[in-house]
Structure formats: C-alpha cells, structure tokens
Amino acid sequence: MKPFGYVAAKDSGHAVALLAEYGKGAKVLAGGTDLLADLKNSPHPPPDVMVDISRAADLKGIALTDAGLRIGALTTHTEIVDSPLIADTLPALAEAAVVIGAVQTRNLGTIGGNLMTCVPSMDSGPTLLALDAQVTILGPSGRRTIPLSELFVGPRRTSLGFAELLVEIVIPKKNVGKPSAFQKFGLRKGQALALVNAAAGFWGGDGVFAEPAIALGAVAPTVIRAPKAEAWLAGRPISEEAMAEAGRIAATEAKPITDFRASAEYRLDLIAVLVKRALAGAHARVTPNQKDLAS
C-alpha cells in the first residue's frame, strides 16, 4: 500500500473533529474490508490521514430505544448475526448480514461501512431500506437524521457532507417486528457479490398484504424500493400468485446492467424470483396480532 498517515478516534465526536481538522485528505477507516482492499490496487493517491474509528465504542451496539431499533454504525456483521435482539425482532437483518463476504470479513466489516461504500450490490441495504430505516449523521454542526434512501446518491456516492460521519441506523418503532425476509443470489453461496438481492416485508395478520415494502439491490445505481409492486400488493389477500405477480412488477421497476457477472435479462428474471421468495419468507414470519403487539 502507498504511505498514509493514521490517527485513531476515541469516539464519534473526536472522529468528526479529526475529519474537520484534516479535511479532504482524511478518510474514515472502520472495518477496512472494502477500503484497504481498494487502496491496495488503487492507482489514485492515498489519503493523507486515515481516521480510524474502529475503537469508538459509542458507535457500537444494538438496542431498542424510544425511536426504534438502534444499530451503531460500527456494529460488525457478525454482531448482527449473533444478536438475540435482532433474531427476535428483525431476523431479516441477520439474513442479510450472514451472506456478506465470509466469516473473516464479517468479523471485521461493519454495517455502517457497508452502507457507506454505497455500491448497488451491498447486502445491508435492501432490508434496511424496506424497513424505512433512518440514519443519524454527526457533523461539525451537530447531528441530523435522514431517511436511508437519502443517503444513497449514486454508485459509491453518498450525501454525506464535509467532515460528517454516519453514526447509527435506526429502524423506526412502527416497523420493529414487521415480518420481513431477505434473499440474495450470487455466483457462490459464500464470498460472492449479489447478482441481485431483495428484501420484502409486510404485516399479514389480517390475511392481506398490509404496508408491503419491497427493496432491491444490484439492479440500479443504488439500492431501490419497488413502489409499483408495493402499491399493487397493498390490501390484496395473501397468496402465492400475488407474490409472484409482485415479483414480476418489481422487475419492471429496475434497470439492471449487463456485466461480466450476469446479463440484464438474467437479473430481471432473478428479481421476480427473489421478490417472490422474500415475500414468502416474510409471510412465514407472520403471526396473528403481530402489529398490535409491536406498537
């Protein structure tokens, strides 16, 4: 690797101060699984200073708060997989975390880092997007909270401003416990990028698709929602045919590309199948009165 400077941040506030101090030459280092791999083969100049946030304890942790389920940006994928709280409330998050990279990368890589790469194929994105996750951003002028959808701007581009740091992800209280599921298809089962991934969730206690949400990855410049499929599904009686049709509609809302991993046509087919499976997975988690119990 090319030479760079290094400074360890004690906590999120310190990290933001360091980012402000070093300006454009600074780069945030969390788990490092994407950043260091990129830096090794990069033809571009290295950052002047690497602001290592991996020791900032306030960025870690999974907890239920008044606002909802809070996940610290520095929480590793393994911590999400192992969390009893997530297994209880939103197992779809663990489904997405457990297919990221391999054990070794899951032990290092963080959910915040995964979101901040802003690659369309990220596995953390669809479930969080389907659950209307909010992200909290800390900057020199304080904290602000925006919907996750507003964080994503384009491939490898987020809306974060100068010296800002993603500190936590919050799944709003109304969606904690919402039956949901995540599906991924890669060329291998482990250590592979998604050709397509999808998440879906809905309340189904009354036998109809209530508040359906569908999100797709690797089929557009960023992770996207499938509003037409959601609208079509809303209020319909739950059936396998409806799930399949929602998958077909979702495919019309995506703009996948052809690359060396798969063709656009293949990805369109995958969307239909994965959305159907994600809906079926969510349905398997439906129990009576779930929504009332959650709120």
């Binding site: 360890a8 280092l29 490092g32 290592d52 070794q104």
Partner: peptide
C-alpha cells in the same frame, strides 16, 4: 477470538 483476514487489518488496529 475472531477469525479475521490479517491482510485487511492495519497493524495499528
């Protein structure tokens, strides 16, 4: 206690 890729972790970390 966790298996990691030593190539993806800085010595400083």
């Amino acid at each position: 206690g966790k298996a990691v890729n030593a190539c993806l972790m800085l010595a400083a970390q």
